[in-house]
Amino acid sequence: MIVAEQKPLEEIKGVLGDAENVLVAGCGTCVTVCLAGGEKEAQLMASALRIASRVDGTPIEATDVTVQRQCEWEYLEMIEAEVEKADLIVSLACGIGVQTFARHFPDKWVVPGLNTTFLGQPEEQGIWTEQCQACGNCMLAMTGGICPVARCSKQVQNGPCGGSEHGLCEVKRIRRVDGVPVMVKGRGGRMMPATEDVECAWHLIHDRLKEHNRLDLITGVQEPKDWTTSRDGGPRRIVREDLILMDEE
């Protein structure tokens, strides 16, 4: 699913301008499951915006509405009445939902309430990890179902590189809690972001292929990846002719 996390309230407040009637729009799919922008979060955000505006002395109306999927026209049509009343929409959908919203209601101003972060998996309650980068040319068949594009720090295609040790990658990731880097005192007393270990994707790949007796899959030199199917080919589009209805003759 698409995994996102909420922006700090301060940032959202900063883009409300002089809107007096704010609609917080939740989305009932991915961001509900990752607890960032579902119905509950939309209600809470609306409440927070109301309270904050009252504390600041310029009370605004903030209401909420949640649709099943903000990334599809059909669902947005269902909330036209609510949207009509608002002069600004805080969308708690992923970046796709925000854009669909903006396109569907061209005369409305829509701002994102979330940072869309990655395509991932709930690792355990409260923890999500990135799994796929939507490279458009899936190579999981070669790597035993473990993605080197999303999960290897250097996107190595012929791994593991020389930085792999004890199943961990030499590259650490910045430790973030609620989206904010955790700062610790580094060498020389300077504050710096704390880091945490990351699994070496290629170590995992190696072990899994070995287990399945399929190491042959990675003994050849993997050719350079064709990135045209990835973002490097420019914005992507899928056309399925079998699904397109022709104009009536």
Binding site: P8, L9, E10, I51, A52, V55
Partner: peptide, 9 residues
């Protein structure tokens, strides 16, 4: 509590 801090209560 963090949220209450953010909204100013």
């Amino acid at each position: 509590k963090k949220l209450l801090d953010q909204v100013g209560l």
